[in-house]
Design a protein around this nucleic acid. Structure first.
Length: 297
DNA sequence: AGCGTCACCCGGACGC
DNA sequence: TGCGTCCGGGTGACGC
């Protein structure tokens, strides 16, 4: 399922062209739009989308969180792939794809197909990205996402780490796979409360999150291959989908367990991802003490 | 505020 | 073989 690394890969390949996704979309002009699953179009209405897009040229392709962002002449086209979505550029006479529910036909005959077997994907055409993306948290792989930024955001909540990492307003682009991988790399329990992490644990989580995402990027968002074409990405994963198998951490004797947290399958090692850090959870103790002394604070 | 639950979908895995 | 059933993924809505 596409998360930040996969979505970034799709955006880059649409921008640069690739064997998997066809030639670049940049510079092409939209002439027509076929809508076969109207509920996919969030804004404007499905019948308004073609006249709205007609004549607009694709200027840039980028990503924000898990959303692909096409800058057009007058508007912005936003595509959320959700679980099964994919975007490809093909010639107009390419074999039909029964899951291509929305097709953007270019004036030069090529077309951009949004293929989405499970029909969870969403499309917006808006004048301003903020209309859709305003609620997203920071980009976790950007330079200004420092461990101090993460520390502050963790302290602002009293939530379990796993659902917090999945919350797109907390940090943008992390999904179930990379959340489990980051927590395993960091040696932190998925149910650990966000405001109890020690400074070294925060730093470790920050490093682990960025490492997990950057590893995914280096594999060209290979979890798409894993999901769709049986590629080898599962060999890269240390926690996700490995229930019952030996923990990969050097020296650890544990086995990966699967639990359900907030309706999501969650994979972790009960040996090296303890509920609390080694020793006393002094941050939680201090927080309780200060609350007793200053109930209003 | 944070948690649980449901709805949205359907390919694939599983049991019989 | 073919049928029925369940699962899971991201997100938003809703209730507590």
């Amino acid at each position: 399922m596409p998360e930040l690394p996969e979505v970034e890969t799709v955006a880059r390949e649409l921008r640069e062209g690739s064997a998997a996704r066809g030639p670049s979309v940049l510079g092409r002009t939209i002439a027509r739009v076929t809508v076969r699953w109207p509920r996919q179009i969030v804004e404007p209405t499905p019948r308004e989308i073609e006249p709205r897009l007609h004549g607009q040229q694709v200027l840039t392709v980028g990503r924000r969180g898990k959303v692909i962002v096409f800058t057009l002449t007058r508007d912005v086209l936003l595509v959320h792939l959700r679980m099964s979505g994919d975007l490809t550029v093909v010639a107009g006479d390419a074999p039909p794809d029964k899951h291509a529910h929305t097709v953007f036909h270019f004036a030069d005959g090529a077309e951009l197909r949004f293929s989405d077997t499970r029909k969870f994907g969403k499309i917006w055409v808006v004048p301003d990205v903020n209309a859709v993306l305003a609620g997203l948290g920071p980009e976790p792989i950007d330079d200004d996402f420092t461990s101090a930024v993460l520390a502050e955001r963790l302290r602002a909540h009293r939530r379990a780490l796993k659902p917090l990492l999945l919350d797109q307003s907390f940090v943008a682009g992390v999904g179930n796979i990379y959340a489990d991988e980051a927590l395993h790399l960091a040696g932190l329990h998925p149910l650990r409360r966000s405001d109890t992490l020690t400074p070294p644990e925060v730093r470790g989580l920050w490093k682990a999150l960025r490492q997990a995402l950057n590893d995914g990027l280096r594999h060209n968002g290979a979890s798409i291959d894993w999901q769709y074409r049986g590629g080898g990405y599962q060999e890269v994963l240390r926690a996700y989908g490995r229930a019952g198998r030996a923990c990969q951490r050097p020296g650890c004797t544990g086995h990966i367990r699967r639990i359900v947290v907030g309706q999501r399958s969650t994979h972790f090692c009960p040996v090296c991802q303890r509920r609390t850090g080694a020793g006393k959870d002094w941050v939680a103790v201090a927080a309780r003490r200060s609350q007793r002394m200053e109930p209003s604070a």
